[in-house]
Design a protein around this nucleic acid. Structure first.
Lengths: 201, 201
DNA sequence: CACAAACTGTACATCTCTATACGGTTTTGT
DNA sequence: ACAAAACCGTATAGAGATGTACAGTTTGTG
């Protein structure tokens, strides 16, 4: 059972790590620099996380947990698939292009071992897609969609929603879009998905 | 006027740089290591490229030039927009998820200055999209598409074509897809675009 | 209060990178 | 054939990262 102090310390470490990743990138974000900025010691960091990749993986898992919680909340209680998607889309999109997610994706891209990438895929996409599957299955049950079409529809939806936005963000080719734009983009994605798969309202 | 020798040397440097980027990532790809593997000296590298970012930018521009050439070739001589798109799509997609492009995107993601990202955007997307605009304008001239819809249609097309494939590749979440899959994906993207915008055949 | 655990701050050995320098060799041009 | 230019190999200074070690302080607990 983690004490209050421990949680506070974790938050400071998290904050320091994100700040340094943003400023200096994955390579420049050294354990010592994180420790210093967090008002902690490198000894503690090594004890807690084992090393740099361990620290990063911890960040990834922490972020993924909050994302999944957000999405679950947005999915709950909707009966109409398209309406639910209208609620979920902006949440998902804004999470994916958020500064934190983008920072983590950059770190994963910079890690040549692919370890971070695997962690990101495992606790990111692989825990979000099942939620979408669950959602799309409800459309199957109401006869709006064929069961075999589900994976396809999800892929198309994600393509329409995200497009090349995420990669451009990660590669420093684009600043974060504002809330208004995100809402619009999510709305258009749902409309187009409805067109392609002829959902009922 | 670059001599034959010079061109050969450039090729060896290019090859060495890609290999080291793939093995050790952006941070681990040092000037000295590139020089050694290329059978060259770091002095030459600094003289030619100024520094690490300069070397990377050179790689980016070199790759972009070959991509644009490929796309131009695929676009040329088509009258029917959708048919041309059917030819261009696989080329574009396979180029975007190719090992080289992915490697460069990883490097740009790892570079905290954003300089590489800017170069990648400038000689990548910003020189490819005009080609697509040109292509879609031909659909406008034949009345299949409204002029204001062009940017939108391009965005949708890219979303359908690429989806989250590129980001997953860059983040080490996915191996390169094979040619067969690429062809299929490109075909579906065109079909769906046709559905959404009601192109004529 | 007193003892044990956990943490900070600093130090350290070992590597590696950047950017520059220089003697010696190969290539180029005339 | 010969001078100039370009290049290789190696060396170097300065900076910083990793992972470990240790003395001293803070924190938690019976």
């Amino acid at each position: 059972m983690p004490s209050q102090k421990r949680l506070l310390r974790e938050n400071r470490i998290e904050e320091a790590a994100y700040a340094l990743l943003a400023e200096r990138g994955f390579a420049g974000c050294s354990m010592l620099s994180v420790a210093k900025r967090a008002g902690s010691s490198n000894q503690t960091l090594y004890a807690w996380f084992g090393g740099k990749v361990g620290l990063m993986r911890w960040l990834v898992e922490r972020n993924a947990a909050s994302v999944v919680a957000l999405l679950r909340e947005a999915i709950e209680g909707g009966h109409d698939t398209l309406a639910t998607l209208r609620r979920v889309g902006p949440v998902l999109l804004s999470v994916l292009v958020s500064e934190r997610a983008v920072t983590l994706n950059r770190a994963a891209a910079a890690d040549p071992s692919g370890e971070l990438g695997a962690a990101l895929a495992a606790s990111g996409r692989e825990s979000v897609v099942p939620l979408l599957i669950e959602l799309f299955e409800s459309a199957v049950r109401s006869g709006e969609l064929a069961s075999e079409e589900v994976p396809d529809a999800i892929q198309v939806y994600l393509g329409l929603l995200i497009g090349d936005l995420q990669i451009r963000r990660v590669v420093h080719g684009l600043p974060a879009p504002d809330e208004r734009w995100i809402a619009q983009q999510a709305e258009r994605a749902v409309l187009r998905l409805g067109n392609l798969y002829r959902f009922q309202t």
